[in-house]
Nucleic acid binder design. Structure first.
Length: 268
DNA sequence: TCCTTATGTACAA
DNA sequence: TGTACCTAAGGAC
């Protein structure tokens, strides 16, 4: 379930549960066993997150985690139960444990390797001080559809399929519009909105994008929470009525992912 | 029990 | 553009 807000939240959660104390590190599934042995018993002394990349710092290096599409982190209270055979990484401390399953990446890397990852990622709305101008320089020169640019982690880090669909809806922007046809004001508004939405996402650990005046309650419709855990305008709402205009939400494939938008509220 | 689907990315052709 | 990879849940049989 990972967009950038999930990863930043995980960084905070790891620090809160394990920071400053030695932990047991194992790989019940086996693929991370050699590296786990190198950090087992060390102190978690720092965490970092950039886009969808999570970094856990130990004396021996950084554990680089990318959840991909299927990866999941589960926390629990100590004592940890026997792990199941799909647990790639288990970290167990005095009061809590975490199990990582199904990640695209779980690897022990060096400081320079970590730096190289930061260098190939675009600015992240959740990293204080990241510069939206860096993203604007690429967006404003590109003929690529803005919906594809928002998902390109080299342009902008942390936005995934939900935030891209929702932020374009909130700004009434057609997903197929070329990046170079966005105005500077539109880009600044999108960035500011992502900063606010994703910070809320970290705080609440879910994606909510519907403005108070558009909630079902405010619109006189029955209350509802979307089945991915938050309240949204268009994501996975294909063929359902738009919260604002009542027209049908449309879906189409774009860059191997499902795109959702309202053709009435997001005119070309 | 099998099939589909999913908030992602990398690499081959 | 297609395909491979990692896992689990839900729905169709």
């Amino acid at each position: 379930m990972p967009e950038g807000h999930t990863i930043h939240r995980l960084a905070e959660d790891h620090l809160a549960r394990f920071g400053g104390h030695p932990v047991r590190v194992t790989s019940p599934q086996g693929k991370f066993s050699d590296s786990a042995a190198l950090i087992d018993g060390q102190v978690l002394d720092g965490v970092d997150a950039h886009g969808k990349h999570l970094f856990l710092g130990f004396g021996a290096g950084w554990v680089h985690i990318h959840l991909g599409l299927f990866g999941k982190v589960g926390f629990g209270d100590a004592p940890a139960p026997p792990p199941t055979d799909t647990v790639r990484l288990r970290i167990a401390g005095a009061g809590a444990y975490m199990d990582l399953r199904g990640p695209t990446t779980c690897a022990l890397i060096t400081g320079p390797e970590k730096r190289a990852i930061h260098e190939r990622l675009g600015p992240d709305p959740l990293r204080d001080g990241d510069d939206p101008d860096k993203a604007w320089r690429r967006v404003s020169r590109s003929r690529t559809a803005v919906a594809a640019l928002l998902m390109d982690q080299k342009v902008l880090a942390g936005v995934g399929n939900v935030y891209r669909a929702e932020v374009l809806f909130r700004h009434g922007i057609d997903p197929y519009r070329a990046g170079k046809d966005l105005t500077r004001a539109e880009w600044d508004a999108i960035w500011a909105d992502l900063v606010a939405l994703m910070r809320e996402g970290v705080r609440d650990n879910r994606i909510d994008t519907v403005r108070p005046e558009h909630t079902p309650e405010a619109m006189g419709r029955p209350p509802r929470v979307d089945d991915h855990g938050g309240e949204v305008y268009v994501y996975r709402r294909a063929t359902l009525p738009c919260h604002i205009c009542g027209g049908e939400i449309r879906t189409a494939g774009l860059a191997a992912r499902n795109l959702f938008w309202c053709p009435t509220c997001q005119k070309p």
